[in-house]
C-alpha cells in the first residue's frame, strides 16, 4: 500500500518535471541566452576600450578606468543590480528590467574582462611592436594587426571562463523582476511545493547550457590554436 503511494508520488513528480521542462527551457532560450549574449558582447567592447586605454597609458582616462574597475569589481553584482533597478528611480531614472540587467552585467563583466584583456595585451612581446613600426605601421595598425589578435588568443580561455560564470550569474536578475529561468521555476515551486525536484531540474538546465559553452570554448581554442597543438602536430608530421 505504502509502496503504491510512493509510486504514485514519483509518477506525479516525473510528470511535473516533464511538463515544467519546456517552460523553464523556453525562458532560458528567450531570456537567459539573449541576456548573456548581449551583455557579454557589450562587456567585450567595454573591456577592449578600457584595456587599451590602460595599455597605452592614456593620462587621465587611465585613472578613470582604474576607478571604474575598482568599483565594479569591489562591490557585489546583486547590489549593483539593486542600485540601478530599485535605487536610480529615486533620482527619476527608470530603466526596464531587461535593459537594466544588460547594463549592469555589461559594466560588471567589462570590469573583469578589461583586466584579462590587459594581461593579454601585455603578453605580446615589445619586439614585435617595434618590428611593426619598422615595417611602416601606425600605432593603430600595430594594435589591430599584431597586438590585439595575439592578445585575444592569450585571453581566450579566461574570457570563456568569464562567459560561463556570467551565464550562471544571470539567475540573479530574477530579483529585479526579469522572468528568466530561475523566476519561472520559483513560480512553479510556489504552486506545487516540489522544491527539490524542480530546483535540481533548473540546475540541470544550467549545466546543459554551460556544457554547450564549454564545448564551444574547446572548439574556439582549437580554432585559434591557443595551446599551439596544431603546430606541434604539423611539426611531428613533417
Amino acid at each position: 500500500m505504502s509502496n503504491l503511494l510512493l509510486f504514485a508520488a514519483g509518477n506525479k513528480i516525473i510528470s511535473l518535471l516533464i511538463s515544467s521542462f519546456p517552460k523553464i527551457l523556453l525562458r532560458g532560450l528567450i531570456v537567459t541566452i539573449p541576456l548573456t549574449a548581449i551583455s557579454f558582447g557589450c562587456a567585450m567592447v567595454i573591456a577592449t576600450f578600457v584595456a587599451m586605454i590602460q595599455y597605452a597609458k592614456v593620462p587621465i582616462a587611465r585613472k578613470i578606468c582604474q576607478i571604474y574597475i575598482w568599483i565594479f569589481r569591489g562591490t557585489p553584482l546583486l547590489i549593483q543590480l539593486y542600485v540601478v533597478f530599485f535605487g536610480l528611480p529615486n533620482l527619476g531614472i527608470m530603466i526596464d528590467p531587461f535593459p537594466c540587467a544588460v547594463l549592469v552585467f555589461a559594466l560588471n563583466e567589462g570590469a573583469y574582462c578589461a583586466e584579462t584583456m590587459r594581461a593579454g595585451l601585455e603578453s605580446v612581446p615589445v619586439g614585435q611592436i617595434e618590428a611593426g613600426y619598422c615595417v611602416g605601421m601606425s600605432y593603430f595598425q600595430v594594435m589591430r594587426r599584431i597586438v590585439i589578435p595575439q592578445a585575444l588568443k592569450a585571453a581566450f580561455p579566461s574570457l570563456s571562463n568569464s562567459l560561463i560564470s556570467m551565464l550562471k550569474d544571470t539567475s540573479l536578475v530574477a530579483n529585479i523582476t526579469v522572468a528568466e529561468m530561475f523566476m519561472t521555476t520559483q513560480r512553479i515551486v510556489a504552486r506545487t511545493y516540489e522544491a527539490l525536484a524542480l530546483y535540481l531540474e533548473l540546475a540541470a538546465i544550467y549545466l546543459i547550457f554551460s556544457t554547450v559553452l564549454t564545448v564551444l570554448q574547446h572548439k574556439g581554442e582549437n580554432y585559434l590554436d591557443v595551446v599551439g597543438r596544431r603546430k606541434k602536430k604539423k611539426n611531428a608530421e613533417s
Binding site: E130, A131, G132, G136, M137, R145, I146, P149, Q150
Partner: peptide, 25 residues
C-alpha cells in the same frame, strides 16, 4: 628597415605573412 637581434617576427603571421605585412599596410 630594421633587422633585430631577436628577429621579432609577428607570431600571428606565417613567414610569407610577415614579409607582405609592410608593403600591404
Amino acid at each position: 628597415a630594421f633587422v633585430f637581434q631577436s628577429f621579432n617576427l609577428f607570431a600571428n603571421r606565417t613567414a610569407l605573412g610577415n614579409v607582405i605585412e609592410g608593403p600591404v599596410v
